[in-house]
Design a protein around this nucleic acid. Structure first.
Lengths: 196, 196
DNA sequence: GCGCAATTGTACCGATCAGTTTATTAAATA
DNA sequence: TATTTAATAAACTGATCGGTACAATTGCGC
């Protein structure tokens, strides 16, 4: 390995920011080289299939982050704390509304078709895992699904409006409202089984 | 006027569908000519400033539709009926989730900056006029604003997910849930003042 | 029917697109 | 230190970009 300034894993987060900011069509190779600091030679060395492979790698990277930080905890950890962490992680990840959802942005472009299964899988898994946690927290299946769907819908909509109005605050505000709604729907926590 | 097959007003809805389907960056001139059936000559005759002028005209056209069908009624008509019509008009306009919001899609692209005021104005006016109707229907100012914001957020989010999951039904489902939430928040209709 | 202006099709422009090729660089290995 | 190989830079490709120029066409007022 020579001039080991960049490794492939270092490049993907840079690419992610470019695609997030410009979308798939808007992210021209010259924009990518300018914003990442990598030359075409480097990019095509890491991603021989070009822009499409870069975008696929970025989608996989995003999906991996959510799987690790949000989806998997929703399935495996205590549901209420996992849900609370989901709100916190979302706010952190989307930088309080200042950062757009790359998957959502891809979904609205024509390019959705090219990445259809990755895009659909991301949202489906988010809804499924959140619904699972809600159900384990005591809600019946139908209500859990409906609330999970509403939550993901709310997050995506808030990101759109935060960017449209150039008013990031709307995102955190919506996140809090969504969290409240879930908490109110959940049955009150039973007192700890031991003690008392 | 020669070969009066097309007038400018006939062209704008065609352009709107192209921009809606492909986004601003994705809507190349060759795609526009192919999908509208108009040649470059015609397009640049109607829109001498090119693609940007086409997009601006489309945004103005969309805004006009919403102003006429939704925003103005929310301000002027009896609030509950205007709100009910808003849900119906939205479902119709977005074709039950099969059609994306052009303004929302533009908001997520880099091109947002170019049309920032049109984009922000559209959403701000939607929230403002809906909040006004809710307040006139009996809610206090803060609650009206919060619910109005949540409603527009929900619509946009549902459009994103409908397209991402390729499952239009999620849109109408969300619309119904949002309408229910507003109805439950509103004070019960007083019996008619006369009679009884 | 004639003339004219509105409309349209087509050939073209320089710039930029995604992608390729080739040569150079630098680190790891021997 | 010589060899090898991953990594990078830069020049280049054909295609397509948004936009222009202009001639051909068309319908309308006369």
């Amino acid at each position: 390995m020579a001039r080991t300034i960049f490794e492939k894993d270092d490049v993907i987060p840079l690419l992610a920011e470019v695609f997030r900011a410009l979308g798939y069509e808007g992210a021209t190779l010259s924009a990518i080289t300018a914003r990442t600091g990598l030359s075409k030679g480097s990019l095509y060395h890491f991603f021989p299939n070009g822009k499409a492979e870069m975008a696929a790698a970025v989608l996989a990277h995003v999906d991996g982050w959510f799987e690790r930080e949000i989806f998997s905890p929703l399935l495996k950890e205590e549901p209420r704390t996992a849900i609370a962490r989901m709100w916190a992680a979302s706010d952190r990840y989307f930088q309080g509304g200042g950062r757009v959802c790359l998957v959502g942005a891809f979904a609205l472009e024509e390019t959705r078709d090219r990445f259809a299964s990755a895009i659909a899988g991301y949202f489906r898994r988010w809804i499924d895992t959140l619904a699972d946690a809600l159900q384990r927290a005591g809600l019946d299946h139908a209500l859990a699904r409906r609330l999970a769907e509403d939550s993901v819908v709310g997050i995506q909509g808030a990101l759109v409006l935060a960017r449209a109005l150039d008013e990031a605050a709307i995102f955190t505000r919506t996140l809090n409202a969504l969290a409240d709604r879930l908490n109110q729907a959940l049955p009150p926590t039973r007192p700890l089984p031991s003690e008392c």
